[in-house]
Amino acid sequence: MWGSALAGASAALLALTAGGGSASADPVSLTQKYTCKFPIINNDPIEAAITTDMPATMKVGETVPEYDIKAVTKVSARAAQGLGVLGAVTLEGKATADVVVTQPGGDGNLPIKVVNTVAKANIPNPAAPFEVTATGKSPGGLLTWGKAGEAAFDVKGLKLHNMIARDADGKPVQLPPNGDEFTADCTLDAGQKTLLHKMTITGGGGQDPTDPPTDPPTDPPTDPPTDPPTDPPTDPSDPGDPTDPTDPAGSGGIPASDGGTTTGGSGSSGSDVNTQLTSGSGGLAATGTSGIGLMLAAAGGLGAAGIAAFHYLPQRIRRGGQAAS
């Protein structure tokens, strides 16, 4: 049981030191030379060896975890001498690395800052070169790979800040003109490599956002919308086409049974009535309209004959009486 527990603890420790719990991570490293501007001694060289564990491959859709970073920096004997003459016996602080992530598939570059804590280191006396160790974690859980391709991690710069030199009593040593803390800006020496790691991003683990969807959109309905009525409603204000001989409204008369046209009385009342019947909402059938117009015209003719008889017969009767007498 104790053996199993120890094995499990060892596996967990290895997964943690592999960076973000990735069991497939591989050791990567980069050594760079910088020139930093220190108090009192001004420009002085340092050499930083960066190590971490990162996977060789990841998949589209996966989020980059945080990685444990370690940087061991070599400081010159000259720097140790300059700090020692002021009574400093230890050195500690912060170191921030400028890292540029080249995203795959042409998604551009992402500049990030990785802050590391410089552990307290003893300054040798007599003066000699010494090392300071910085540890930290890269930002994790932020960047998700969106495309397949190759990603790159380049270290482009370094800055030492919040650096504190302490005396034997643990009190900060004043380093003019900085006070208790100082900052050392560092410049990467010419010709130095910057590539820390390359990573291949594969298209697995979900669909590549650059690929077209596998299921095309649903086809539009095959049946087009219902066509509008081919015969628009008759406009009541349209008197009709006067050139059309079959149009009762335009001819001013009524179609006769033999195909000719019979005029309706002395005015246009027959035509007006016929037009009103054929207009409006929906209208009437042509044959029904012609029949109604014919009946109306006949009624008008009978009325006219009755009126004539009303005036003519009395006169005829009187003339007949006078002749008889």
Rank of each mutant, 00 (worst) to 15 (best):
W2P: 05
W2A: 15
G3S: 13
A5C: 10
A7E: 13
A9D: 07
S10T: 14
S10A: 15
A12D: 08
T17M: 09
K33R: 12
C36K: 06
D44S: 15
P45H: 00
I46R: 01
T51G: 09
T51W: 00
D53I: 02
M54H: 04
P55K: 11
M58F: 10
E66S: 15
I69S: 02
A71D: 13
A71I: 07
V72P: 03
T73D: 00
K74L: 10
V75K: 04
V75P: 00
A80V: 05
L83M: 14
G87E: 02
G87L: 02
L91W: 00
A95M: 12
A95G: 06
A95V: 11
T96P: 05
D98E: 14
D98I: 01
V100M: 11
G108I: 12
I112L: 15
K113N: 15
A119H: 08
A121E: 01
N122F: 00
P124D: 05
N125A: 11
A128N: 07
A128I: 03
A134E: 04
S138T: 15
L143M: 12
G149A: 05
A151G: 13
F153V: 14
L158V: 07
L160G: 04
M163W: 02
R166N: 12
A168C: 00
Q174C: 00
L175E: 03
N178G: 07
D180N: 14
T183N: 12
A184I: 02
A184V: 00
A184F: 04
D185L: 06
C186R: 03
L188I: 08
A190N: 14
L196T: 01
H197R: 12
T200V: 14
G204H: 00
P209W: 11
T210M: 08
P212K: 13
T218N: 09
T222A: 10
P224L: 06
P224Y: 02
D227P: 08
P229K: 07
D231F: 06
P232A: 05
D235R: 04
P236E: 10
S237L: 13
D241M: 09
P242K: 05
P248R: 06
G250T: 08
G250I: 10
G252F: 03
P255C: 07
P255M: 11
P255R: 13
A256F: 01
D258C: 08
T262A: 15
S268V: 14
G270I: 12
S271H: 09
T278V: 12
L284Q: 07
T289P: 04
T289C: 11
A299M: 14
A299F: 13
G300L: 09
A304F: 05
A305R: 10
L313A: 06
R318K: 11
Q322L: 11
A323S: 08
